[in-house]
Simulated assay, not measured.
Amino acid sequence: MTFTLKQIRYFVAVAETGSITEAGRRLHISQPSVSAAIAELEDRFKVDLFIRHHAQGLSLTPAGARLFKDARSLLDHAEELRQGAVGLGQSLEGELHVGCFQTFAPIVMPRVIRAFAAAHPAIVITLHEHHVQGVVDGLAAGQFELALTYDLNLTEDLAFEPLVAMPLHAVLARNHRLAREKELSLEQLTHYPMVLLNLPQSRDYFLSLFSSRGLRPRIAQETPSFETLRGLVASGDGFAVMHSRPASQQTLDGRPVVYRPVKDKIRPQSLGLLRLMRIRPTRRSEAFAAVARAELRQNPA
């Protein structure tokens, strides 16, 4: 036995007005549409809901009167559900899940979240840190509404808004032989061992920068951790290449590193906002995007 809220709404309107014609006027629909809905309900429920009075309208049968009470309650609950569903998308309170590429999450997210909390204290941010592919997978799985990440290997079903251009830098120990140079080429770097960020897509991306120029770096260490990478660079004579550049040039164990621009013609990675194109953004996610936009463009990572 199936029925629709539209049919129940028509039934309630007829019960309240006592007239098919008046119910149609109230609902702004045709009289035949109302009559068809009532007839279908009676057929589905196997009971007469109204007594038809010639030229005097309709009145509820005992069964119709019982149904009327429940039908009104059902419509009230449906309206509560509608308002709640609207709130899911339009309310500026509640919880917002945000994804972020893990290498620059500690660089940009604390200040973005701090600025967002000041602007929208009724919204609680839940942060999800992933590698590049993990960010895309998390969006597809509905784990979060939007993310801050790089424009790396994006597919057509994703909408990306670039915010900050992140040029490539070499990371070196302060006492490295190349640290005195103002800028470096990838060819210069290949004379020294490399510490490679080993994350899905990131690893292949960094190696492709060398291979596309006929270069083959000598990989000494690999790590999925941005801070471990910097620590390994600081404690040896190797190098790393990164787009993310934190404000501090000191590793977690207190050793200094330096950053030098790579002078090869390499397109900067864009740090920006990513979402699924087919999903309409909520007011909460739009509010977060506005804060991230203002914060990062004013003070790039």
Rank of each mutant, 00 (worst) to 15 (best):
251 T>A: 10
282 T>I: 05
20 I>H: 10
182 K>M: 07
170 A>R: 01
242 M>T: 14
107 I>D: 09
120 H>Y: 15
203 R>H: 13
278 R>P: 04
128 H>I: 04
273 L>T: 00
109 M>A: 14
285 S>G: 07
198 N>G: 06
69 K>C: 02
77 H>Y: 06
186 L>H: 08
73 S>V: 09
238 G>N: 03
241 V>N: 01
256 P>E: 10
27 L>E: 12
160 F>L: 08
142 G>N: 09
54 H>A: 14
47 V>A: 15
260 R>M: 05
99 G>T: 03
98 V>L: 12
89 G>N: 12
173 A>W: 05
291 V>S: 02
62 P>K: 10
171 V>W: 02
236 G>S: 15
259 Y>N: 00
250 Q>L: 13
169 H>K: 10
86 V>H: 14
47 V>M: 10
189 L>K: 00
240 A>G: 05
72 R>D: 02
60 L>W: 01
216 R>F: 13
128 H>N: 11
215 L>F: 08
24 G>L: 05
180 R>T: 12
135 V>Y: 03
119 A>D: 10
223 T>I: 10
245 R>F: 09
213 R>I: 10
40 E>K: 14
69 K>A: 13
75 L>P: 02
148 L>Q: 01
169 H>Y: 15
140 A>G: 02
126 T>K: 15
217 P>Q: 04
284 R>T: 09
95 E>A: 11
210 F>Y: 15
140 A>V: 11
139 L>N: 02
73 S>C: 04
210 F>I: 04
101 F>Q: 13
33 S>M: 11
29 I>N: 07
268 P>F: 11
15 A>M: 02
78 A>G: 03
158 L>N: 02
41 L>V: 06
280 R>K: 10
294 A>L: 12
178 L>N: 00
228 T>A: 15
157 D>L: 04
294 A>V: 09
294 A>E: 15
131 H>E: 10
31 Q>P: 06
236 G>E: 12
268 P>Y: 12
141 A>R: 14
258 V>Q: 07
224 P>S: 08
57 G>Q: 04
237 D>T: 08
122 A>I: 00
31 Q>T: 15
296 L>C: 05
211 S>C: 04
86 V>C: 08
25 R>N: 06
